[in-house]
């Protein structure tokens, strides 16, 4: 297993280098002189020359790339133009908020998606299957920012059950924090619940038609035991893999969800950075997301091998 992880990490290196090239090129796409953007209203030639020197913009582009990537490897992703804080520090501050939102969303998605998928596969061809499929497809089709707006309208404005916006750190008030995050997490989890439901259904359908399930039934085992102990346990392999892979979907969804519910997380940081033309932050975020996504992919592969003994032997 260690050799496998080592191999996967080695393969990841060229991909990470390419991501860094891509992120670096993004800045070069910027029309005009980036120094003018940094200087804002200040157009003093001396200031512009100082900024050019400070950001080493007079160096050849290849030297600029290696300076940038060298700094990034040491944890220096640059300074935010807006807040003058190091980008990594900003990401470190905002990430726990998004991780809490994403974790709650994932729990909600698993609680809804997996049982719905199992039931849908077990009752294949019945109205239950039909309804579950329609609900799942609707979950995939509904824009989560609209669902968020509609839920604020119904649950916060009309019924007054949950707050429409705001954030409380989990460490300060765990219950209050969960209460404020419940609606955003549900909104973020809907699409993922739909994805999980479809994968669970398909995995369960393939397992339920296998010989050992027929044997288990022929032995006279209770249907609940057949379904949970024999079928679901084997269907878990693709389900766990998909769960690891929805990371990207969660992060992208968090951008919009945090915007609607005014949650000061990673997603809101991206949007604020974009509107303030804080390019160092945008670059830092895309780089960190890309690298994290690659590690989640490796984790998915490892989970797949751990759960599937046949893969382990290969």
């Amino acid at each position: 297993m260690l050799a496998f992880i080592g191999r996967r990490l080695l393969i990841a290196i060229p991909t990470i280098i390419l991501i860094s090239v891509f992120v670096f090129t993004l800045q070069k796409l910027l029309p005009g002189d980036p120094v003018l953007v940094m200087a804002g209203e200040e157009r003093d030639p001396e200031v512009l020359a100082y900024l050019r020197e400070q950001y080493r913009l007079n160096d050849p582009i290849i030297v600029q790339y290696f300076t940038w990537i060298g700094n990034a490897l040491r944890g220096d992703l640059g300074i935010s133009l807006r807040t003058q804080q190091p980008v990594l520090e900003l990401i470190r501050q905002k990430l726990p908020v998004t991780i809490q939102l994403a974790t709650m969303a994932l729990i909600i998605a698993i609680v809804i998606g997996v049982p719905a998928g199992v039931l849908s596969a077990y009752k294949k061809g019945t109205w239950i299957d039909w309804v579950a499929n329609i609900v799942a497809l609707s979950g995939l089709s509904v824009p989560n920012f609209w669902l968020g707006i509609m839920m604020i309208l119904l649950i916060s404005v009309q019924l007054g059950w949950l707050p429409a916006s705001g954030y409380q750190p989990f460490s300060d008030d765990p219950l209050g924090s969960i209460r404020t995050m419940l609606m955003p997490a549900f909104v973020l989890g809907t699409g993922i619940a739909a994805t999980l439901m479809r994968h669970t259904r398909s995995a369960m359908l393939s397992v339920l038609s296998s010989d050992y399930i027929r044997t288990a039934r022929a032995k006279g085992l209770a249907e609940r035991v057949v379904l949970v102990k024999h079928a679901l346990r084997n269907a878990m392999v693709p389900i766990v893999t998909v769960t690891t892979l929805v990371f990207g979907e969660l992060l992208a969804g968090a951008v919009l969800t945090e915007q609607i519910f005014t949650i000061p997380g990673f997603g809101k940081l991206v949007v604020d950075a974009v509107f303030n033309r804080d390019y160092a932050v945008v670059q830092g975020i895309v780089l960190c997301t890309g690298v994290a996504f690659i590690f989640m992919n490796i984790l998915a592969d490892v989970a797949y091998r751990i759960l599937n003994p046949r893969m382990r032997d290969e």
Partner: peptide, 24 residues
């Protein structure tokens, strides 16, 4: 394949937001 993997590593919407931000 390497370029594809690198591009797939950034979530679809984050990539689109970053590109739209830089393009205007």
């Amino acid at each position: 394949s390497r370029v594809t993997e690198a591009l797939l590593a950034a979530p679809f919407l984050i990539l689109a937001i970053a590109l739209a931000a830089f393009l205007g």
